[in-house]
Write a protein that binds this DNA or RNA. Structure first.
Lengths: 234, 234
DNA sequence: CGGCTAATTGAGACTTCTCAACTCCAGTGG
DNA sequence: CCACTGGAGTTGAGAAGTCTCAATTAGCCG
């Protein structure tokens, strides 16, 4: 089961600069000392919440990665987002809605559990929080639009290549952890395990990338791009 | 060219109940009288703004329909959203970003042009506006997630059927305007013109739906669902 | 080492796209 | 009023892409 690690203290929080409280000046931070959200850990594959659950808490991811998924009655699954440290999720309750997706850790994670009722108050009293959240929603929306373009307008190889390139950007040619199974990459890109595997194998054979134990290295991004996205498709 | 129709007066606005000012009490509305956004008309296919343009204005759609599209360098296009009366769009500037998509009318439209600088002020001073906008962003995000599931996890027929069913819901078996060409339906669902046309023709022949001059009638939703979504896939 | 799961690979089926021809319809101009 | 025209939609045939099923291999943990 999930495990309550204790109460969080925003003032001393290591990842506050990544959180929705990043812009909050120190004096406000001291004032809201009373707000001590729970820090909770979840094991890999231990669901944080299910689609349809009442959205009473939002979460900030402190450690690890989380996938947000939606599932069709017939079992087909789509990953709608992969969360990283500092990301806020589970805020559907702000719109009076229940969770629209299921949140599942990709590894052991640590989150900060923020009761929406309290967060609403804080947000009301601190324009910086409100503002930071707004910017994030807009960014998420933009990313979602980008993803629709990926899913709707690109072929398998293009989707996979541009996903890898995005995943590895800012790591010029180095090794990057990719803690997603073939199945999960497929669920993210709307492809089957086999299709993902085939292209990755091809590209490894062609020397575009290397892989070992959950890490990946893009050795020749330009080559990959030229081979896959001939017409500027990714 | 687009045509400035005059200044809008929120107090007397016919569609205010659908806008982000819907929750604003009348006395606040009187106070913000100075805010008189421009009402502008655009002809069909006359672009409101382009992806990449600086986002200085947001818009509220007053009349007509708008499509938001993203285009790949090779010309393939994805419609990321179809807007209806009352919808707010073009707010990327709130996050310090330029427009992430191109906004094109599907027919002659009328919009209310809201300078972001002024809207920011109003929002700051009126929690109701802030709140309404927040709810809408969250709703948009939810719809975007739903769309990712459509695009990533469903087959052509399933996407098309569930699109039609959604488009026609709340119009039990009646005629519903569908001002989208086959190409546009395709761009929305990630399909080609021909694929869209084939399924629609099939379904017309099977008596699931009728069509004439830009309107559609779902005659047998259950039949359609049973034929297409056998395993609960839409 | 054995046993399990994930990943790979192949073959064939199925879906969707591409290209091309044709039809239908609305609008135009004679 | 009607023939013409151009665009949108339809339909067919074949190609390409992706999936499905099945067999095999690789990698990890006990």
């Amino acid at each position: 089961m999930s495990n309550l690690k204790g109460r969080g203290h925003c003032q001393s929080c290591q990842i506050r600069h990544l959180s929705i409280f990043a812009q909050l000046p120190m004096d406000r931070l001291i004032e809201i000392q009373a707000f001590q959200p729970s820090v909770v850990t979840y094991a890999a594959d231990e669901t944080v919440y299910y689609q349809g659950d009442a959205s009473l808490n939002a979460f900030t991811l402190r450690k690890g990665l989380v996938k947000l998924i939606k599932t069709l009655p017939n079992g087909r699954t789509q990953i709608v987002r992969v969360l990283r440290t500092g990301d806020l999720f589970g805020f559907d309750g702000f719109a009076g809605e229940s969770y629209n997706h299921t949140a599942i850790p990709l590894s052991e994670i640590e989150v900060c559990r923020l009761p929406l009722a309290e967060l609403t108050e804080l947000k009301k009293q601190n324009a910086e929080i409100e503002n930071t959240m707004m910017k994030r929603w807009i960014q998420h929306l933009r990313e979602a639009e980008d993803m629709m373009l990926e899913l709707g307008a690109k072929k398998a190889a293009e989707r996979l290549a541009s996903f890898l390139i995005r995943w590895c950007e800012n790591n010029n040619g180095g090794w990057v952890p990719l803690p997603l199974s073939r199945a999960e990459v497929g669920e993210l890109l709307g492809l089957t395990i086999e299709t993902v595997s085939r292209f990755l194998s091809d590209w490894k054979r062609q020397g575009f990338l290397n892989e070992q134990r959950g890490s990946i290295q893009l050795e020749n991004v330009d080559g990959l791009r030229k081979a896959v996205c001939a017409n500027g498709s990714c």
